[in-house]
Amino acid sequence: MTAPTQPPDEGFNEKDQRNEMDVAEVHGSILREQSEPRSGAEPVPLWLLTVFFSIIFWAGLYLAYNSGGFRADVFDPTHGAAAGDAAAQAGPVDPRVLGKRVFTQNCVVCHQTTGLGIPGQFPPLVGSEWVLGQGWHGDNHLVKILLKGLQGPVQVKGATFNNAMPTWSQLTDEQIAAVLTYIRSEWGNAAPPISAAYVKEIRDKTTARTEPWKSKDLQDIPAEKAPAEAPPAPAAPAPGASPAAPGASPAAPATSPSAVPSASPAAPAASPAVPSASPAAPAA
């Protein structure tokens, strides 16, 4: 590389001009200043290059997972793949598949993919009496926690945790039912599934409550078992939760914008819309 130095004199040879200049015009500030800046030639440190290449590697991975297939009509990268799955199945969604997806998107940050939580911070779900409905814990408590959140100290498998779980009421009844069904049957847990109808029932009963549950509040509510009326078989639509399936919609035109026949299965649909809409949806 060129050794970039400031040649002190060369390049200025207009001596006539210099002579014409009034010496007083060359101010003290100009006379005392340093020569024009130059560049040194220290090499780029190796550790810096290593850091940069790891960032570039991460960037490639991130883009691969979040590009939404570089399509102009995919607005939500995390749903891009999900929509593809749903289209491939072209049928009702197994609650455990939907549940796993909901769990991956919302729960793994605290409870981890292993369901073991983080000791001292976030309680485990594996073998947890809260999840399986053992002891004083009922399935109703579990649903209530998802709908309103949980705050303050809790005892799980003999350990104490003091943290806050946010509310998940923005999830639909189907999504909550699916994720609960998933955590009750994964990692060796074996508790019966929970139906969307049961979630809806509890959601309707607890609309008045605004603040998160506390452990002792729940203890005062008698434990219930979730009704086993809705079998885990994916074919059964959750009663009451999908009000206007497209097949039945001619009877109720325009009043129910929730089920749009034109919903395309390839679209990055919010996943709960898929089970009810897809059977009658035209192939895009």
Partner: peptide, 15 residues
């Protein structure tokens, strides 16, 4: 706006 444009900017920002 399409997801990939946002993801590209997220990546470029980190870079």
């Amino acid at each position: 706006i399409p997801a990939w444009m946002i993801s590209a900017s997220v990546v470029a920002s980190v870079m």
